[in-house]
Design a protein around this nucleic acid. Structure first.
Lengths: 347, 347
DNA sequence: CTGAAAGCGCTAACAA
DNA sequence: TTGTTAGCGCTTTCAG
C-alpha cells in the first residue's frame, strides 16, 4: 500500500499563505469568506488531492451523520426492499448507513447493537430477530436519548417509533376471504409469537373465525420458523391429519409457496383441495402456479418511512413525535385461494 | 435528545487516580497492565457508562476498519446473498460495512464511491452498475493504493482483484446442453456488453454454436436490461418472428421466468415448443413450472471470497496477490430445457 | 473578511 | 507496570 501523505487543510493553508480556519470555512461555503478566496481554496484543494477528514470532524462535532440499521437478514425480498427504501432516504439527506445483520439471532443482534453504539450512529432503525426476548441491549441507546425507529418486527417502548402495517387486520381479512370461499378448517402457519407481526396475524385469524362462528382449534395453528423447510413439515403434518384442512393461511410467502409445491407433489390440488394464502406479496407469489393470494406489504415504503421519521427526529427540535405509523396493506386475491373461480362477496 | 456528558478515558482515569494511557491500554487488553488494574478499569468503565470513541481512535490510527461496498442494487437475491456473505466475513474480522447503492446508474455509483472515499474506508468491494463505462471515479482509490475487490460485474485494472465465475464456460455449457436437446434456433437474451458477465456469456453462446456447426445469427441475440418487463418484450418479439426459436438462453433467472410465464400465456409450451435456460439459480427457479434449468452462481461464496481477499490484503504485508479468483459454477438441469424428458449425452 | 489558538478523545513513543 | 506528552485534522470562539 502506497502511503502518500494525506493532504490536510493545513497543507492547503500553507500553500496559499492562509490560515486553516479560512480554508475550513471556505470548504464549507461559510458566508463570511470572499468569493475569490473560496474559489481559490477549492481549486487548490482539488489540485492537491485533499480529502475531508470525517473523523476529525466527527470528533469535533460529536455527530456522525450515520444511521445504524439492524435487521434479521439481508437476503429476503422484504428486507432487501425495505433497506433499499431506507438507503434512498438516507442518501437523500446525506446520511451513511451501517448495516448489522442479526441473522435472526438475539445474541448477534445485541452484538450488532453494541457495535453500532460504539460507531456512534446518530440513530437506529431496527427490525427484531426471530427469537429476541429481552430488549435490554437497546437500553444504552434509550438512556442516551438516541432515537430508535422499529419497523416490521417492532417493540413497544417509550420514546421509540414503530412503522408497521395493521397485521391484525391483514390476518383478519385473509382468513375472512378464505371463509367466504367456503373454507372451514383453516390451518394457520405462523412464527414466534413474541414478534408482533406473527402474534397479530394469529389474533386476526382467531377473530375472523370467531366472527364467522367457527370454533378455534389450537391443533390447526402451527408455529415454526417460516422457512422453505418449514413448509415441507407442514405438509407432512397435514398428510397425517385425520380430518384434513381445506385451507392454509401462512405468515409469509416463502413458506406458502413451499406448502403449495409440497402439496402438489403429494397429488393434493391447490386450491381445489386446499386453498392457500400467504403474506408479503413477494415476486415469487406471481410465479407459483396457481398464483398466490397474499397480503401486499409495502416494504419499500416502510423502509422510506422509517428513515424519514428517524431523520426528522434527528433534525427537528420539536419534542412531540408519532409513536406508531401504520402503512396500508391490501389483500391481493389470486388463484391459490379461489375455490370456485370467483372471489365471492361477503363481510 | 438528552445530553449526558460522554465519559472518556480521562474521566475513568481521574476516578481511579490513574493515567489515561493506562486506561486506554487496559481497555485494549494490552499485555503490560496488571490483571487487577485491568479488572478495575473495565469495571469502572462499565459502571460509568463509558463508550469507546471510534473517531478519536480512527483519527489517531488513520485506519477505520470499515469496508465500502458498492452494488448496483440490494433487492435481488443474488446481491442480497453476496452481501450477506461479505457481511459474515467482515463481522468475523471486526470490520464495519458501509453500503452504497448505485441503482444501476453510473452517476450514482461515482457519487457513492466519492462518499466512501471521504468515509475513508480501508478498502472497497464493488460490483459495477449496468451502464458504467468510465471507471475513472475509482482513480482516487487506485492512486492512493487503497485496495479494490470487484465481484460479479468486474473491471480489469492494475492492482485490483476480481472474484468471478467462468461466465464464458457457463454460457458455453448452457448452450451446449440446449444443442444436445436438439435445439438449433437458440435465442440469447443478455445485458449490456460492457459488463464482463454478459459479454462472456454471449461469447460462450457463440462458441457453443460454432463448435456444433450452427451459424451465428445476430438477430437471435437480444440485449436488454434483464428485468421482468424485458421478458415480456422478448416474448412479443418471439411472437413476431417468422421462424420461431426452439430455445432461449437468458442471462438471468428473473427474465427467464418472465419469459416462461409469458410464453405460457400465449399457449406456447415450455420446453415442448421452446426450451428455456436461465442464470443464477435463484430460488424462483425451483418454483416456476416447469422448473428452470439454470447456472448455479455461488453468490454467498463470492461475497465471502471478496471480503476475505480484501481483508487479507489489508492485513498482510505481502505484496503479491491474486488478480483473479474464479469460483466454481455448475449447470443445474431441470425440466425447462428437457425436450424429451432425458438429459441426453454428448460433448 | 481572516487568523490564532484551544480542544474534541485516543494512542504510542518515550520516560520513569 | 504505569505516567507524560504530543499530536491526529477539524471547528469555532474570540480577536483583529
Amino acid at each position: 500500500m502506497k502511503n502518500e501523505k494525506e493532504i490536510t487543510i493545513y497543507d492547503i493553508a500553507a500553500e496559499l499563505g492562509l490560515s486553516p480556519s479560512t480554508v475550513s470555512r471556505a470548504l464549507k461555503d461559510h458566508p463570511g469568506i470572499s468569493k475569490e478566496t473560496k474559489q481559490q481554496i477549492k481549486e487548490t484543494a482539488r489540485r492537491m488531492g485533499y480529502r475531508f477528514n470525517k473523523f476529525a470532524s466527527n470528533l469535533r462535532l460529536k455527530r456522525t451523520n450515520t444511521i445504524g440499521v439492524v435487521v434479521p437478514k439481508l437476503n429476503s425480498y422484504f428486507m432487501a426492499t425495505a433497506i433499499t427504501g431506507i438507503e434512498r432516504i438516507a442518501s437523500k439527506y446525506n446520511y451513511n448507513l451501517i448495516i448489522a445483520n442479526s441473522l435472526e439471532n438475539e445474541k448477534k443482534e445485541a452484538e450488532g447493537v453494541a457495535t453500532l453504539y460504539n460507531s456512534r450512529v446518530d440513530g437506529l432503525i431496527v427490525s427484531l430477530a426471530y427469537n429476541t426476548s429481552k430488549i435490554k441491549h437497546f437500553d444504552i441507546f434509550l438512556k442516551k436519548g438516541i432515537p430508535i425507529v422499529f419497523f416490521d418486527r417492532v417493540f413497544e417502548c417509550k420514546g421509540c417509533v414503530r412503522v408497521i402495517i395493521d397485521n391484525f387486520k391483514a390476518g383478519y381479512e385473509a382468513v375472512s376471504h378464505l371463509i367466504c370461499q367456503g373454507c372451514k378448517r383453516i390451518i394457520h402457519v405462523g412464527g414466534n409469537l413474541k414478534r408482533n407481526v406473527y402474534n397479530d396475524r394469529l389474533l386476526g385469524y382467531r377473530k375472523a373465525l370467531e366472527d364467522n362462528g367457527i370454533n378455534y382449534d389450537e391443533s390447526l395453528v402451527i408455529i415454526n420458523d417460516l422457512t422453505e423447510r418449514a413448509g415441507e413439515e407442514v405438509v407432512r403434518k397435514i398428510l397425517r391429519m385425520k380430518k384434513p384442512p381445506d385451507a392454509v393461511f401462512t405468515a409469509n410467502d416463502t413458506t406458502a409457496v413451499s406448502i403449495i409445491l409440497n402439496l402438489q407433489k403429494e397429488g393434493i390440488s391447490v386450491p381445489g383441495d386446499i386453498a392457500v394464502v400467504g403474506f408479503n406479496n413477494e415476486p415469487i407469489s406471481k410465479v407459483i402456479h396457481p398464483n398466490l393470494t397474499t397480503v401486499n406489504y409495502p416494504a419499500y415504503e416502510v423502509g422510506e418511512m422509517a428513515a424519514n421519521v428517524l431523520i426528522d427526529r434527528l433534525n427537528s427540535s420539536r419534542d412531540v413525535f408519532p409513536s406508531t405509523i401504520v402503512l396500508e396493506h391490501n389483500l391481493i386475491i389470486r388463484e391459490s385461494s379461489l375455490k370456485n373461480g370467483t372471489i365471492g362477496k361477503k363481510g
